[in-house]
């Protein structure tokens, strides 16, 4: 759910109506995408394409900076110096990814500051998974390995999309995420092959993160609003269920090979290659995304504090005569 393209019914309806667009320009635009060309910031694009891309890239950017919060809380409590250095580097990367993504969205005409306002005022969302707490050090292993693993599945797919600046940002991000995944796996394996207490701590963390990880890719296809347009315009490139399946395929074996378990007796791979699992409680997903999760308030309060406490510094840096221009690429 990093670059979430889950639509509301209202959005889906609006997407299907392109009658306000110049039909010739729209046809040229769709031909270019069908030929695999990238769309660049000052190219003609339908208003809905711009709107959905801003929404998606902005949510992705918010997810990066809010996602750094549960991990950031463990920097002071990392078990040793090497892990601490790796975690600091990872958290810095996440903030950098947020900046890259805000910049990509900014090329579409919404400033970074407007996006940050909308995050604080609740008008735009971030990935639901970051509304859960990181209770122990094993949670950091699970986040670094499995949450980043899920994010990479999503980001690699999205990097094949049609909007040039977003694809370029994602390529850079995926390159750095491969370090996150490796250090997360390393941490995960050390706990899994450690003392009885370490294994128990890791198993407990896996049990708590299992459902949020299934929620990560968004509601199942039969429960979500669809838009053929988003697929045609290469804003969305794979369905939620397909991405979730790819994630389970890649990561479940890596958990089981360590003698760990997943808290779901119905989890299995069918002969047709599709994974089956118990209902991960989509009502809970809805509740949390609408603000009633264990950490929603804390995450936004920390961002709000950073915004208010750092304001005087940014005000001092302002040059009132600078003329703003939308970035080029």
């Amino acid at each position: 759910m990093y670059g979430s393209t889950n639509l509301t019914e209202q959005d889906a309806k609006r997407m299907s109506d392109t009658s306000a667009e110049d039909p010739q320009k729209l046809a040229e635009f769709e031909d270019r995408i069908a030929r695999g060309e990238k769309i660049e910031p000052d190219d003609w694009m339908p208003a809905e394409y711009r709107r959905q891309l801003i929404r998606m890239i902005e949510q992705h950017a918010h997810s990066e900076i809010v996602g750094a919060l549960p991990e950031g809380t463990w920097i002071t409590r990392a078990p040793n110096f090497r892990r601490k250095l790796a975690l600091i580097a990872k958290v810095q990367d996440e903030i950098g990814h947020g900046q890259l993504l805000y910049s990509a969205a900014e090329t579409l005409g919404k400033t970074r500051e407007q996006m940050l306002d909308d995050l604080l005022n609740g008008r735009s969302k971030y990935s639901n998974i970051f509304n859960y707490p990181a209770k122990t050090w094993a949670d950091i292993a699970v986040i670094g390995f499995l949450v980043d693993g899920a994010a990479i599945v999503n980001q690699v797919i999205n990097s094949k999309g049609s909007y040039g600046p977003y694809c370029r940002a994602l390529e850079r991000i995926c390159y750095e995420e491969s370090f996150h995944l490796k250090q997360g796996h390393d941490n995960f394996v050390y706990l899994a092959t450690g003392t009885k207490q370490q294994r128990e701590m890791l198993q407990d963390a896996i049990n708590r993160w299992y459902r949020p990880l299934l929620h990560f890719f968004g509601p199942p296809d039969h429960l979500s609003a669809h838009s053929e347009k988003l697929m045609k315009w290469k804003v969305k490139l794979a369905s939620n269920d397909d991405m979730r399946n790819q994630f389970l395929d890649q990561y479940v074996p890596k958990i089981l090979e360590l003698g760990l378990t997943l808290p779901d007796p119905n989890l299995r791979k069918n002969a047709d290659g599709r994974w089956e699992f118990s209902d991960p409680d989509w009502e809970e997903f809805k509740r949390v995304i609408n603000g009633d999760g264990p950490c929603n308030k804390e995450r936004l309060a920390v961002r709000r504090y950073a915004e208010l406490a750092g304001r005087w510094v940014r005000e001092a840096l302002m040059k009132p005569n600078d003329t703003y221009k939308v970035p080029l690429a």
Binding site: T76, E106, E298, Y305, R311, M318
Partner: peptide, 25 residues
């Protein structure tokens, strides 16, 4: 998070936030 508790964030005012800084790129 011990750091979050030290900040006393419940004291932070609620309500709309408007970021008044708008740096150039």
């Amino acid at each position: 998070d011990p750091r979050v508790n030290r900040l006393n964030l419940s004291q932070t005012s609620e309500g709309e936030v408007h970021t008044n800084t708008h740096l150039v790129t």
